[in-house]
Amino acid sequence: MSRHTISVTVNGSAEYVDVPSNMTLLQMLREKLALTGTKNGCEAGECGACTVLLDGEPVNACMVLAVEVDGREVTTVEGLAHDGQLDVVQQAFVEEGGVQCGFCTPGMLISAHSLLDRNPHPTEEEIRQALVGNLCRCTGYTRIVRAVQKAARGRV
């Protein structure tokens, strides 16, 4: 297995990471950078628990090799709050009860962010479509959708 040293910006901070060529971005975040907020739910790109932003676009981190992010920017759930202040989407999830077990939450938050960046005033159906790749087994999605709606209002 060949090894590579990559340079990547994670949550605004420049990192140099030594990775084997078969390591995924998910493994790199969790095992090399101890950013365990990004979750491993299936390692097959199906559940969305590992959703992160790569150069601003949502990706399943389990489907991206670490070497592919060389020179690029990654945002994880740990990069959303600043100085202990929740951002508007996080705050809306707390207030609307969009969190139960919390395992899908980091991926949900990232997908919600991505949606609101692209479409600041989404309809309910657009929100549901945007979250279709993020499985949640606890909430029934109602409060998650409501939280994204609230966040959209709050971002204006």
């Binding site: 950013l35 365990t36 907020g37 990004t38 994880t76 759930v77 740990e78 959303l80 709050a81 929740l86 996080q90 999830f93 707390v94 969190v99 919390g102 939450t105 980091p106 938050l109």
Partner: peptide, 9 residues
């Protein structure tokens, strides 16, 4: 537990 769960902590 909501704060810790939305921050990844």
């Amino acid at each position: 537990d909501a704060f810790d769960k939305v921050t990844g902590a």
